[in-house]
C-alpha cells in the first residue's frame, strides 16, 4: 500500500547516506506535492550491491515549485520540476 496519495505534501529527507542513491542532492530537504504514484520498483540502493531479493519500494513522482528549490530562480512562478523519489526518502508534511 502506498504511504502517500496523489496531492499529498511531502518533504524529501535531508539525509546523506553513502551508496548508490538516486535522490539528487538539490532536492533533499525540499517540499513538494505527489504528482502520481508510479508503482513498486527494486530499490537501487540494494540492487547496486547485488541484493536482488531486497523488498521492493514504492516510487512517486513529486512536483516541486522551482522557486522553492532555487532561492534565486529566474523564471515564471508556475515553473516546476518533477523528480522521481522512492518512498523511504519522503516524509509527511503537516498541512496548514
Amino acid at each position: 500500500m502506498p504511504r502517500f496519495a496523489t496531492g499529498d505534501r511531502v518533504r524529501v529527507r535531508a539525509a546523506h547516506p553513502p551508496g548508490h542513491v538516486r535522490t539528487p542532492y538539490y532536492i533533499r530537504g525540499r517540499t513538494g506535492i505527489v504528482e502520481r504514484i508510479c508503482r513498486e520498483f527494486g530499490n537501487p540502493e540494494e540492487l547496486a550491491f547485488g541484493r536482488h531479493d531486497a523488498p521492493k519500494v514504492m516510487l512517486y513522482r513529486v512536483r516541486f515549485s522551482q522557486s522553492d528549490v532555487w532561492s534565486d530562480y529566474k523564471g515564471a512562478s508556475d515553473d516546476t520540476i518533477d523528480v522521481e523519489i522512492y518512498e523511504h526518502w519522503l516524509e509527511e508534511v503537516a498541512n496548514g
Binding site: 538516486r22 535522490t23 539528487p24 532536492i27 508510479c38 520498483f41 537501487p44 516510487l59 513522482r61 522551482q66 523564471g75 515564471a76 508556475d78 515553473d79 516546476t80 520540476i81 518533477d82 523528480v83 522521481e84 523519489i85 522512492y86
Partner: peptide, 12 residues
C-alpha cells in the same frame, strides 16, 4: 507558459 522540467532520476 510554465516550464516543467522532468528529472529522470529513477525507473521512468
Amino acid at each position: 507558459v510554465a516550464v516543467r522540467v522532468h528529472d529522470s532520476t529513477a525507473d521512468l
